[in-house]
Design a binder for these strands. Structure first.
Lengths: 197, 197, 197, 197
DNA sequence: AATGAATGAGTGTTCATTCAT
DNA sequence: TATGAATGAACACTCATTCAT
């Protein structure tokens, strides 16, 4: 077992999956990209499905590293911003992975690893919201809905960033947190006179 | 050409696509569900791809009906809430369609109809944001990022609602608008002391 | 049973078969060309194969009319020329039929009618050759080979004429007979010094 | 890519095409005859159409080898006889190929290779005829008609030979050339008293 | 550790034919 | 006499996987 060959296959698969999506990706594409014989593929991975899951596992474990638990001794908002920024940075460093995870979540069975991770993160956010409400810092709200909204916002923004260059991830992270915390309304509590859309 | 048969095929395809995803869906599944012979399918649709596109077109045209242009004589916030509510209602009335559109956006080529529509809606939102800023109602912000964030929030929330029963769509729509406009922060402008996540 | 409808179908089939060949011709093409419903086709013909055979029968019976038995009281060469000319005229009047018969003789089973007819004509020619030899008019030769050669020559020439306009069939018929009887050699019996090709 | 397997497939296809014709030939027949799995076929040939074209190309290239340019230093008539003999020999060595090429020229698109080759040979013959006329060796005649007639004669004769055994190809070739050069008429220039057919 | 020829189950699509109206 | 919606057997082609070398 050569670690190099395994690495080449993984890299090739990331590229091919991100470009064509799982179903349109063929083993032929992957081995051609990796410069490896057909049989070699099955020396390292049991199946096409397995190499995808391997890749998804990597993504999840990397995200687990980048999303750090909030340290209560420091300003939590700063830490939320930093967490989001690190996620954005990862997405932009590994655009192919981001594309696989965010744009082509075809089959729930295949992407269960990812879905479960997202569910987990959503739960974390939901718990945080509840804590904030209990502490009187956040408004009373449907935490289950709001948690999903926040996650969805981040996901969609990342997809949008994948095609851009020289993104200021810190700023984007701040904007997102700002949106979540303060909203976009300027004039305080009441917005009865809003005239747009 | 019988409108009934066409309808049965469309209904069957929605069901099968939503349950299995486009690639795992087989013509056999569709025609078995529709209770129709194999040849009949191709009497009404040129290919598996075409029936999917037909379905996506329907979704888009229904969404276009439900998302109404803001009437400047009435409170725009109310109208935004109503628009979102109508979209949520549609998603819950046609859960299968929602699942197809939101969970299995596999292949950009196949789902271009949908992607284009979402791009369009995102642009609408972005324009509204700009107007609001110009009128001094909304805070200065990166409209392109925020528009995506808002769309992403709604999408993710819808996905979350698909498995729930007796959803109060009006309340969810209000919560979403509230999140977008006021944020979740209770204590006014500054949130330096937040202690959560 | 309307004779008109039957005629329309036959005409349509001739056109379609000659343009696309038997296998590429579809019932759809025929009924569209005939301006008749699908079911109507099967009211008049048992199958696609049957309508082809019907057409081939027509060809054969028409050829039987045009190829007249040699009347020994008149110059036989003149009559051979006339026979060939009438065949050429038929081919040019009914180019579609000629194309079906001569260019697309795909399947021996399908075209047995035609093959049998050609075999029959070949036999006729062979018998005539033998008679001519017995009478001392024609050279000793392998009649079976020569008969085929003569038939083949006529067939190929007809195919060549189908794309031409204003063909002088009388002249072509004479040229063919001349070729068969005298050959193309100018200088009598010996041609040892030929210098061409 | 194994040359052997490719060869087995080609041989099998020749057999099947010649027995059933292109349209009635199924991939199943070919692979069963070749003793090879379905997928293997597509490893060597893109499609059913492609393997046919491959076969036709082979035929044409073999014919190009066997039909030699006339060497002006030797007796051209001898060389014409030899050319025809070599073509007859090839047809009898590879009866299957001959059947494919001569009996089942179904679809102009499929058989374009062959048609073009025949057109080419026809042109060659036509040019030779013109030269012969210019040199005063051959009678004035419609070279375009005569060239086709000669080619047609050879084709039809070959078809006739396919079912025979122990054919003396040299003799047949001579008979054909004799027919073309001298005709079958015994009594010199005039044949007004012919009494046959 | 690597190769690549071979496999064969699986699937979308076609099209001649039927039959209820 | 005519219609056209429905049928389903048939077939070309794909591609993940295996295995002898």
């Amino acid at each position: 077992m050569s670690v190099q060959t395994r690495g080449r296959l993984l890299r090739a698969a990331k590229k091919v999956f991100s470009e064509k999506g799982y179903y349109n990706a063929q083993i032929s594409h992957i081995i051609d990209t990796a410069g490896v014989a057909r049989g070699t593929f099955y020396l390292y991975f049991k199946s096409k499905e397995e190499i995808l899951k391997e890749i998804l596992k990597e993504v999840v474990s990397e995200l687990r590293v980048r999303i750090k638990v909030i340290d209560l001794k420091r300003d939590p908002v700063d830490q939320i911003v930093e967490n989001i920024q690190r996620v954005l940075d990862f997405a932009l460093e590994e655009k192919e992975l981001a594309r696989i995870v965010l744009q082509r979540n075809c089959d729930p069975k295949l992407f269960s690893t990812i879905e479960e991770f997202f569910d987990e993160v959503t739960s974390m956010v939901e718990n945080s919201l509840r804590k904030g409400i209990d502490l009187g810092l956040l408004r009373e709200c449907d935490t289950s809905v709001l948690a999903k909204a926040l996650i969805g916002a981040v996901k969609e923004v990342i997809v949008g960033l994948l095609d851009k260059k020289d993104v200021d991830t810190k700023k984007v992270a701040r904007d997102l947190v700002d949106l979540g915390l303060r909203g976009i309304w300027k004039g305080g509590e009441s917005y009865g006179g809003f005239r747009a859309v």
